[in-house]
């Protein structure tokens, strides 16, 4: 569905993502793990153009998308309307939720469809209520985000992303900002989404979740893919890659 080919991102002297190839298939669940600062989040943000690439290409359904080259041959982002359309088909859930604090839970979930897709309020409301039911927050629909727990906020954020009916969901450390006892409710929301066949890319530090959820686990370090494999391969006791092994020994 989406292919990243040789994508590169530099922040000054630091190469955050170093010529990486990633192919995301329809219905696939990819979990990216690795130490902090290894470029996981940057890679994830490249997929919906929140981060621009310095080199390489991004293909959506086999066609190059999002960038063109200027006269000097540098990559520049396509005009805003094109990018917006691409983004509207990709949902994203942030570590710090980023709910809109001035809107109620229901308004948060309705906002995308109404403003971006120009859906009628009634239609958007029906969809939003359905999604809030799925994440178990129907009773909180008229509450402002400030009055929710972290776990509830993240479930609203998931519902908000889903309201756009995305083809792909990106999760950027969705449980890292949560108290441990609230992690479970967010994971089960993601799991039920997976059960519906949603394509997703998840960046997480929760190894148990990675093992349980992933079709494919990618270990990233210093902007490169160090290891790629099924959960049973990555989390096996006979892991022969020394860096992956050192990391696993630390986190498990």
């Amino acid at each position: 569905m989406i292919d990243l080919q040789g994508v590169l991102k530099r922040f000054g002297a630091l190469t955050a993502v170093d010529h990486v190839d990633l192919s995301i298939e329809e219905g696939e669940r990819i979990v990216i793990i690795g130490p902090s600062g290894s470029g996981k989040t940057t890679l994830l943000r490249m997929i919906n153009f929140l981060e621009t690439i310095d080199d390489g290409r991004i293909l959506i359904d086999g066609r190059e998308a999002g960038y063109r080259r200027d006269r000097k041959g540098r990559l520049v982002l396509e005009k805003q309307s094109v990018i917006c359309t691409l983004r509207s088909e990709i949902g994203m859930v942030f570590q710090h939720f980023h709910l809109f604090p001035h809107m109620t839970v229901l308004q948060n979930v309705m906002e995308g469809p109404v403003t971006v897709k120009k859906q009628s309020r009634e239609e958007a409301r029906a969809v939003a209520l359905d999604l809030l039911g799925k994440v178990g927050l129907l009773d909180k629909r008229d509450v402002y985000p400030a009055f929710l727990s972290g776990g509830q906020k993240q479930r609203v954020a998931i519902a908000r992303a889903l309201a756009m009916k995305p083809r792909l969901m990106l999760f950027d450390e969705p449980t890292s900002a949560l108290d441990p006892e609230l992690v479970g409710e967010v994971f089960s929301a993601i799991k039920s989404l997976a059960a519906e066949g949603m394509t997703m890319v998840i960046v997480t530090h929760q190894m148990g979740f990675a093992r349980e959820m992933a079709d494919r686990v990618i270990f990233m370090d210093n902007g490169k893919f160090i290891y790629e494999g099924t959960p049973s391969e990555v989390f096996s006791d006979t892991m022969d890659n020394p860096r992956v092994k050192a990391f696993m020994d630390k986190v498990l």
Partner: peptide, 24 residues
């Protein structure tokens, strides 16, 4: 993060300003 969240939904800069940033 508010601007990013708005953009991730597919909002344009002005939509994000008008609907998300300025009201806050």
């Amino acid at each position: 993060g508010q601007m990013e969240a708005a953009k991730s939904l597919g909002m344009s800069y002005w939509q994000a300003m008008r609907r998300i940033i300025i009201p806050q």
